[in-house]
Design a binder for these strands. Structure first.
Length: 259
DNA sequence: ATGTCACATAGGATGTGA
């Protein structure tokens, strides 16, 4: 089974690339983030023509997540049970389902903005709610993984210039501790191969020529439990998809499994 | 270069978020 995660930065703007990418890679299950769509705008028909079902948690202009699968899509749960609200709204940042024998989550962790911002405290509460929500499946015997845009670089190796990020979100000890707590619950970071350069970055800002200069971060992660990681044959970041006009600012992370 | 995108509102520039 080939499973992947991709922050598409608008499913509508990315649709031609998304459809071509699914066909070219033969991906079985795709976790998407930042659909920036309503349920009505989601391109379920175009995906169905390619042989995929979709489960969507999206409410409009911001956020939005989905699962796209051609190997089954059962027991869908929309949202993060016990998750916090932001400004009185339960944002669409999580969706989970069973696909081809694996339990899979697609998550879009809050950005945090700045460490002094309410959004940062919200981010930490969200990550703690995620830890609690996935604890049972993380420790279970069924292949299980949380995939998505975590908006946290797990180590300094995952940032092109750690000095530049001092005092910024995505690299603070509290954020990294939240990832460590997920790992202590039974999940492991599935490290992808870079297709070029030493570090497998997954995100490069659109500004400042960050992609051509390879000034990126690894913030799109695959956290799998023991049965999931034992089945991993290969993983890579498809940086080719970050190239050219009409690219997302994130590249897909692909995992091949003996499942 | 605070350098790019994508979306919404409004009614063709400007605000928001990343």
């Amino acid at each position: 089974m080939r499973i992947a995660t991709w922050n598409v930065n608008s499913i509508t703007a990315r649709l031609p690339r998304l459809l071509a990418w699914l066909e070219n890679t033969g991906t079985d299950v795709l976790c998407v983030q930042e659909t920036k769509s309503t349920l009505e705008q989601f391109p379920s028909d175009a995906l169905r023509e390619l042989g995929y079902e979709a489960a969507v948690n999206a409410t409009g202009r911001w956020n939005g997540v989905a699962l796209i699968s051609r190997v089954g899509l059962d027991d869908v749960v929309k949202g993060l049970p016990g998750g916090p609200e932001y400004e009185g709204v339960e944002e669409p940042r999580a969706i989970s389902a069973t696909c081809g024998g694996a339990r899979v989550w697609s998550v879009y962790v809050p950005n945090g903005r700045e460490v002094t911002h309410d959004h940062y405290a919200y981010k930490l509460r969200w990550l703690e709610a995620l830890r609690v929500a996935v604890a049972e499946d993380s420790a279970g015997e069924r292949p299980f993984a949380v995939l998505g845009d975590f908006n946290v670089a797990p180590t300094d190796q995952d940032v092109w210039d750690p000095a530049l990020f001092e005092g910024a979100t995505h690299v603070t000890p509290a954020e990294r501790d939240a990832l460590a707590a997920l790992r202590e619950g039974g999940l492991s970071d599935v490290m992808p191969r870079p297709l070029k350069y030493d570090q497998p970055y997954t995100f490069w800002d659109y500004r400042e020529l960050r992609f051509p200069k390879n000034r990126g971060m690894r913030i799109d992660l695959v956290y799998g439990n023991g049965p999931f990681t034992a089945a991993v044959k290969d993983s890579y970041v498809d940086r080719e998809e970050r190239k050219g006009k009409g690219a997302s600012d994130h590249a897909p992370v692909v995992v091949d499994l003996d499942l």
